[in-house]
């Protein structure tokens, strides 16, 4: 059986400040095909800012991004390598769901295989779906795209436990084809799928070896 191509993504030396307030002080993030990287951090620690910076939508003081052996200098290129599920809904509200899938080059039938409920929604505009349903569609589109990487910013928000389990299964299934970066405050669900966990604290990224590290960095109580 042919092994999928192994790709690597590295974002390093990310420095971001708003006036006097330093958000990121040389933060870094790495991912590779076959690996799920979990990113944890308290509210306002700069996780979403880091993702937006990597996607080229937030101007930083310093940022270095490398995809395999090539340095990514133009932010317009990032969409080709990374699909990003933003924290808030990003699908056009008036667009029918099936059309959204056409834009992404994704197969709606495959989506309904994973989430049968959506078989009734192909012509439904995004705005008529519930927040959780939009979240599921967005997560699926990012995870099941042909991109070598995807970043999921709070994919478990607004989701029922059953849907979280399906998304977890989807992450485990898709990680063989791509590198996945996940951030969520539902850290129990995140820890179940993550192969490597990073914690963002005071603008620095720390590698988490076990749960005691989360307590030590003040992310949760022991």
């Amino acid at each position: 059986m042919q092994q999928p191509e192994k790709n690597t993504l590295l974002a390093d030396s990310i420095r971001l400040s708003f006036g006097q307030f330093n958000v990121l002080n040389g933060a870094w993030l790495r991912s590779e095909t076959g690996k799920v990287t979990g990113v944890l951090g308290r509210n306002g620690s700069g996780k979403s800012c880091m993702f937006r910076a990597i996607m080229g939508e937030l101007k930083t003081q310093d940022l270095f991004v490398r995809y395999n052996d090539s340095v990514v200098t133009h932010s317009d290129e990032m969409g080709r390598y990374v699909k990003y599920q933003a924290q808030k809904p990003f699908l056009p509200p008036k667009m029918p769901l099936k059309k959204v899938f056409e834009y992404f080059g994704a197969d709606y039938e495959r989506f309904t295989d994973d989430f049968p409920k959506f078989a009734q929604y192909p012509d439904t505009p995004v705005k008529e779906l519930s927040g959780g349903e939009v979240r599921i569609a967005e997560t699926w589109l990012c995870l099941c795209s042909d991109s070598p990487f995807c970043i999921l910013d709070e994919p478990f928000s607004y989701l029922a436990p059953v849907a979280i389990e399906v998304i977890q299964k989807l992450i485990k299934r898709q990680k063989g084809k791509m590198g996945i970066i996940v951030s969520d405050h539902n850290y129990e669900a995140l820890l179940e799928v993550a192969d490597e966990v990073l914690l963002l604290s005071d603008g620095y990224v720390h590698l988490v070896r076990d749960r005691s590290d989360l307590v030590r960095y003040g992310y949760c109580r022991g």
Partner: peptide, 9 residues
């Protein structure tokens, strides 16, 4: 966040 639809496609 809406911009990410276009970036993603």
């Amino acid at each position: 966040d809406r911009r990410f639809f276009y970036i993603n496609v």
